[in-house]
Nucleic acid binder design. Structure first.
Lengths: 225, 225
DNA sequence: ACTCAATGTAAAGGAATTGTGACAGAATGT
DNA sequence: ACATTCTGTCACAATTCCTTTACATTGAGT
């Protein structure tokens, strides 16, 4: 069973609700609407949406306020929030999505734009919503997925390369001696020529970027500088 | 009194300055901004920030150039530097840590991300400085990283030089006889001319500063006076 | 002051270590 | 079965490091 993603739209302008709502429904989403902040929060609690699109400027309770309340609700903490703002509006207000906003969209909105934006947000949500990845020098390791995030791009690495990277990455700056690397990545009983390490380091360097790894001659390697 | 951490933001795009600046201020930091490299350096010298966030791509003077100048300024050598780079930009240049950056962050930036990243960087620096304050005559040795801190500057030494320094440094003031040095650093079975020691001492003197090592004629060397 | 052995200094060769591309067997996917 | 990817090894190039060498300078003892 393929459950549709639920989207909650909060805006005080009925035209916007209708326009955006229509397009998102066409794209296959379940859309709910609310015409003010208070109603938006009630709605959010009852339908538990995947994504909330929130107008910043609303009478009584504005978008940022709504965002704060939703963020502090443990049941809704995973929900993605996107702000809707009028173009040219003061950036610093929009910047209020330190409260937990994930994106913002400027009005007037083209339907196609908003649909693709929503798709992107929902696609990204799985990895993003849990917690911020632990990035070190622009590199994050996802042990579950066996992948590496370099500059936001996901990259799959072969097992040995992954393990080697994981070892060095786990303690950036620490120098791992060649023997230590061997026993950690290859195990104590396996016998491989020492040059093997160099070759794998080279692979990592070419894939993740040179400069991420530092050679300490006669000793070993480290991640970072 | 709890002094706020000072952050200097250098970018030619006013939007970025505003967006990031706003969010960092919200997080409780003292934020200063500069809209080009030249101004950034002036600002850095006058406010002595804890962290500098530096756009790589800027007209006239780019981020790496600024970084180099700051790194060569003894009063600012302790400062943490993070680069801002556009996603997808070739970062091999930046990643070449010759530039001396401590981290880099990709644009477009989410406020949440940058705030947590800044926190992490500042946290790291603090622990770095409190956890290994074993300075002797302005020199600290970091065995794990295989580096030496001289007046706050991190320096990588070749293996033999590092071992020699470590030996002498471990007991400042104590005179190590030449034979003792040989057996400790080179081992008992290795045969090298005695002048080898002198040459290595000289290397250390030129790198760490003369005056740190004292010659005891006819006997050996010691660290300190 | 002089002497001479010890040390300072710079440069240069050689030694050791690492970088790199190509290759072959193993493992895996189709 | 075939193609693809992964893994480890090799040979050779590039680099860094170490040691030696040659000469200058120092300083303790006479």
């Amino acid at each position: 069973m393929n459950m549709n993603k639920k989207i909650l739209l909060v805006d005080d302008e009925p035209d916007i609700l209708e326009l955006i709502g229509y397009n998102l429904r066409q794209a296959g989403y379940d859309v709910f609407t609310a015409k003010n902040g208070k109603q938006g929060i009630e709605m959010a609690r009852s339908v538990n949406p995947d994504l909330i699109i929130l107008d910043v400027m609303m009478p009584e309770m504005d978008g940022m306020e709504v965002c704060n309340i939703i963020r502090s609700d443990s049941k809704l903490s995973h929900t993605i929030i996107a702000f809707l703002t009028a173009r040219g509006e003061d950036y610093s207000q929009v910047a209020g999505f330190d409260a937990g906003g994930d994106d913002y969209i400027t009005k007037p909105v083209k339907p196609k734009v908003i649909v693709s934006r929503v798709k992107a947000l929902l696609r990204r949500s799985r990895s993003d919503k849990t917690s911020l990845p632990d990035e070190r020098f622009g590199v994050a390791i996802d042990l579950e997925r066996f992948t590496v995030l370099v500059q936001g791009k996901e990259l799959a690495l072969p097992k040995k390369e992954f393990e080697l990277l994981n070892l060095l990455w786990s303690e950036p700056g620490k120098v791992f001696k060649r023997e230590a690397i061997l026993s950690a990545v290859w195990g104590n009983d396996v016998v491989v020529g020492d040059r093997t390490i160099d070759v794998h380091i080279r692979k990592l360097r070419s894939k993740l970027g040179d400069g991420l790894f530092t050679t300490v001659k006669g000793v070993g390697y480290k991640f970072g500088k």
